[in-house]
Amino acid sequence: MIELSGVTCRYGPGGDRRAGGTDPGDGDTRAGETRNGTTAGEGGVLAVDDVTLSIDDGEFVVIAGANGSGKTTLVRTFNGLVRPTTGTVAVNGRSVEEDLVAAREAVGMVFQDPRDQLVAATIGADVAFGPENLGLPREEIDRRVQAALAAVNLSGREDDRIATLSGGERERVAIAGALAMEPDHLVCDEPFTGLDEPARRSVLDRVRTLHGDGTGIVIVTHDLRDVFPLADRIVGLSNGRVVVDGPPERAVASLPGIDVRVPARYPPDTGADETGRSKP
């Protein structure tokens, strides 16, 4: 269970990269935010603006929004990678600020471009990285690596070199690395960017199975075509604010207004009372 209450994230003017902690990272928030985000009165940039949100265990949520809408920054507050300027975030009832380790175990995160998040030369060594950091005994680490690789259809591939993998395989290794932490929620930030059609399908298929097995899934995307049929709920962001929150068939009516790609077979519904807006 992830609970956000009145979360606002503001970045300082300029955003000095060397300072490290202030930089949100991906293009979604760095370049995009400065151009499209709401500029705050007192200097700096408002990436997330007063968001209150809760995500249940086992829920499949899609966080949708155009580049620069603040979606990457928002999900990074779930495990304390970004600390809100104001507001609170709690995971399983505990404040993220107070127990970072618990939050990062409970919320596994996979980022855009898996090439820049895999740390070891081989699949097995990479997936073991997280559990090793948790200080688990070796047998437990090995068991988790096996289970995580099985969950992404990469059993028996421990010794394969990361450098030789395809894009889809790398994405699945990154997911396995997050699963080895045994998270309650798996957050994937733009998981399909740069993948070809078969790779997208295999990643999607794995995500669907994980959801079926009880793991909560959060997908961050500007392209809803692949995930639309799977989602329990769609949260639409625009300029750092939640503008849509509801089941897909209800949310779709408002989606074109926030500039995300939607599946062709869900034309915007103009029904007056079906907008599904969370805020009036």
């Binding site: 437990e140 068991r143 988790r144 699963l179 097995d213 009880g214």
Partner: peptide, 11 residues
């Protein structure tokens, strides 16, 4: 449920 199961059992 297998994955989750094993997870929880192993805690």
């Amino acid at each position: 449920m297998i994955l989750k199961w094993v997870y929880r059992g192993a805690v």
